[in-house]
């Protein structure tokens, strides 16, 4: 589903964010990406959503080389990728319904279809009763779940999450991860960047670790030594 081939990214100014990163996430897989802040997690996700382009190497999604995607096509690529952000990226002056409906309105769904899907997505994340609220009236965990509902409302085959549990306590974090597991079971590939090692340690998923731009471990969580990071 996501394939990196010898990818390096150097920002203008010479800061090298990624060095020869190689990995492949299969369709239907759920994987974690971890590392210190500044290790290159965000850069890696930005390469997938084409917010940045690699300096060297290839990024492929479902076998398509992203370097062949033109600027005009990027919007259509993003419709295939559900993205979840630490800062939620919600429209604060719009209701929960309008926020979740945004991807559908952009794609030109009819009013009826939109309403149906938004309600289904909000039900999945357990916010059916908050449809008309503004995001500011919700707690941090609820806001994050609105973000997740928006990411899955058009049923993308791939979900990317950047620190989705960043500001949440362990219990809420676990709830969010359970949600991702549900989507994964429905066949969606899920790729989550997080530095919450405690959270990863409790689960048995493949984990990729970045350190100073290099991929240092790639394996299942139970083989994974969190100490590795701090050597």
């Amino acid at each position: 589903m996501i394939k990196f081939e010898q990818v390096s990214k150097t920002y203008p100014g010479g800061q090298q964010a990624l060095r020869k990163v190689d990995f492949h996430i299969e369709p239907g897989e759920m994987a974690f990406l971890t590392g210190h802040s500044g290790a290159g997690k965000s850069t890696l996700l930005k390469l997938i959503s084409i917010m940045e382009r690699p300096t060297v190497g290839k990024v492929l999604i479902n076998g398509h080389d992203l370097s062949c995607i033109q600027r005009k096509q990027i919007a259509y690529i993003r419709r295939d990728i559900g993205m979840i952000f630490q800062s939620h990226q919600l429209l604060m002056d719009k209701s929960v319904f309008d926020n979740v409906a945004l991807p559908l309105i952009i794609e030109g769904y009819s009013h009826k279809e939109t309403a149906k899907r938004v309600h289904a997505a909000l039900e999945m994340v357990g916010l059916s009763d908050k449809v008309k609220n503004l995001p500011v009236m919700l707690s941090g965990g609820e806001q994050q779940r609105v973000g997740i509902a928006r990411a899955v409302v058009n049923k993308p085959p791939l979900l990317l999450a950047d620190e989705p549990t960043g500001n949440l306590d362990p219990k809420l974090s676990m709830e969010i991860i359970r949600l991702f597991e549900d989507f994964n079971q429905a066949g969606v590939s899920v790729f989550i960047a997080t530095h919450d090692l405690g959270l990863i340690a409790r689960m048995k998923y493949r984990t990729l670790t970045l350190k100073q731009g290099q991929m240092i471990t790639d394996g299942l969580t139970d083989e994974f030594q969190s100490d590795d990071l701090y050597v």
Partner: peptide
């Protein structure tokens, strides 16, 4: 969809007619 062959995006999924799409 550019990346996923066979994945329908947007209004196509509900199989509406050209006329309705025109209207929309």
């Amino acid at each position: 969809s550019i990346l996923f062959k066979g994945r329908v995006q947007g209004a196509q999924i509900s199989q509406i007619s050209t006329y309705q799409r025109f209207l929309m």
